[in-house]
Design a binder for these strands. Structure first.
Length: 280
DNA sequence: AAACATAGCAACCGCCAGTAA
DNA sequence: GTTACTGGCGGTTGCTATGTT
């Protein structure tokens, strides 16, 4: 047999929280701390499901929540992180101290989606809405840009980011990008990818400890490293010195180490568990 | 001023991975 | 090894506020 049920389905309130319920929840968590959401409602004298308490605390009552409007920098960071991670709102929230996944999700759906559409960018794919599968576009990394001793021919638009590698024109861009994101390294891909074993199973450090890096990270990501005509995602994220990256950019890693915001996901410092991002 | 449309956001729902029993 | 619960996540809903006609 498993555990007992998390909460009584009956006799629980739903809908908007009252001030009194908020106060009870805050008082209880201040005294006893977070955790054991199952027993919390009863212990705190709340007629709520533990799940509901957790959500209310995390999304609304937590004292370290930032509240207020998103800044332009936060906007851009969300866009870029979304282009990397997709709808992984909790991961994205992990890079925005004081913001919750729910808040970012809402903000994306209400503001950023429209913003991108106005720019002619598909918010789902981060590519121009008129993009044709067989036509190389600015979202493809066939652009040869150079940062730090790398060739530059045409820098990518600031809000479009892709980690696909150069590939024959008959290969759909979508397939390329998905494969790269998912770290699918077919033999054919390995011929062309400098960092074939890039793994997006990233482990991220606690945001509150790195918030000062947030802004430099943005500027760095607006100038991703190119490796022979392709963007090396690992380098872009600042893992040149790590095992994760075997691309040629390592040759200049000494310089890159000085790059501000280089350690975007704080990977250099070792294994970091994104779950530690949960804001407490 | 009233009616309607739209935007914003808090909260719920359902699913899933991990894990206690 | 199996069952069933917990905690967490992403998607969606529905209420409220604001804007427009």
């Amino acid at each position: 047999m498993g555990r007992s049920p998390c909460c009584e389905k009956a006799h629980t309130n739903k809908g908007a929280w009252t001030k009194e319920e908020d106060d009870r929840l805050i008082a209880y968590i201040r005294t006893h701390g977070e955790g054991c959401w199952r027993s919390l409602p009863k212990a705190a004298g709340l007629l709520r499901c533990g799940k509901s308490c957790r959500l209310r605390w995390i999304n609304y009552l937590r004292p370290d929540l930032k509240r207020g409007n998103f800044t332009e920098d936060e906007d851009e960071l969300i866009i870029k992180l979304h282009s990397l991670l997709g709808n992984k709102w909790s991961l994205i929230a992990g890079r925005l101290p004081g913001r919750t996944d729910n808040e970012i999700k809402n903000y994306w759906n209400t503001h950023i989606r429209r913003k991108l559409l106005n720019r002619g960018i598909d918010p789902a794919t981060h590519r121009p809405v008129t993009d044709h599968p067989t036509t190389p576009t600015t979202t493809s990394t066939t652009v040869t840009t150079t940062v730090n001793n790398h060739n530059v021919t045409s820098p990518p638009p600031p809000d479009i980011i892709s980690f696909a590698t150069a590939k024959p024109a008959h290969v759909k861009n979508e397939e390329m990008e998905e494969d790269t994101k998912l770290n699918i390294s077919s033999p054919d891909h390995q011929k062309q990818e400098r960092c074939p074993d890039l793994n997006l199973e990233l482990r991220i450090g606690p945001p509150q400890h790195h918030s000062s890096n947030m802004i430099p990270s943005i500027s760095y990501m607006q100038q991703p490293l190119m490796t022979g005509g392709t963007i090396c995602f690992a380098c872009s994220l600042g893992v040149q010195d790590n095992k994760e990256c075997r691309c040629s950019a390592n040759a200049t890693s000494g310089n890159n180490n000085n790059n501000v915001g280089f350690d975007f996901f704080k990977i250099k410092n070792g294994a970091l568990d994104y779950r530690s991002l949960e804001m407490k």
